[in-house]
Design a binder for these strands. Structure first.
Lengths: 141, 141
DNA sequence: TTAAATGCAAAGTCTTTGCACGCTA
DNA sequence: TAGCGTGCAAAGACTTTGCATTTAA
């Protein structure tokens, strides 16, 4: 398992270190978008002594290397990160527990074309996130 | 025109002041999403001496009272504001000049229903912003 | 060995807040 | 006049950076 992380890091042109393996480990057992703070806390909890700024640097680097995705969480006013799973397009995020469901189908490409034509913009991308409450969290509401 | 602002503010339960009128004036002649800094600079430029924190407070208050909309600008890493125009749903934002085009048609309601059914989430909303370059800005690229 | 990663502390950016004073209704 | 709005200065939250030290390859 540790080897997997090593290989994964290597593929992305990154050295394997205790901290990076730890971050990878945490993200991979996580179905939520997690904040830097959460990752940091989880690292400490599993005995990996790291610095806050290291976690920032790792997550930033991972994002740059397309290993993770950086998402602004409007309800928190800060960024969250999650492993980038191939083939995903958009996300459904639980407002309570931050669980994330990847939505494979993107309904927007036709829409983008239509808008591009109407507005004469060059459209280079979009943000789409759905928000709601997951089956567990919606029970308690 | 000044009276319009006054009436508009009143409708939203707000006193008319020099600063608020100024902000309203700037936003109404603006087709872009503007940052607090931009609003602040514009106010000074038109001779309205205000404090930065006042601009923050005004924009926050306007947003609370549904007069404006607060949007996170991913490329800037901070918030922008724009007048809330009735009937809009989503926005197309120019990455260079921040011009905004409101998109009346929201293509997502069916999609939301479909996702809700598949995932059993209660979906309460979504974020959709399109990004690109407007006709003027795309020329110089 | 050597370049890259990390720890630490400090600074940076955007935003918010407390309090006294000023202005609108 | 009474209460809301504003200026000012300070603090707060999140994030980034510089530099010395440690570590992986």
């Amino acid at each position: 398992m540790n080897d997997d992380y090593k290989a994964c890091l290597r593929e992305h042109g990154l050295k394997s270190t205790k901290a990076r393996n730890g971050v990878l480990d945490i993200l991979s057992r996580e179905t939520s978008v997690v904040t830097v703070e959460t990752v940091y806390a989880a690292l400490l909890e599993q005995g990996c002594k790291v610095n806050f700024s290291t976690v920032y640097r790792i997550l930033e680097m991972f994002t740059e290397r397309k290993l993770t995705e950086k998402i602004f969480l409007p309800d928190e006013g800060k960024y969250g990160f999650s492993l980038r799973r191939p083939g995903h397009t958009h996300r459904l995020i639980c407002l309570q527990c931050h669980k994330v469901v990847d939505l494979a189908h993107c309904p927007l490409s036709d829409y983008e074309k239509e808008v591009a034509q109407k507005t004469q913009f060059d459209i280079v991308g979009h943000n789409l996130e759905l928000y709601g409450y997951c089956p567990e969290c919606k029970k308690g509401r």
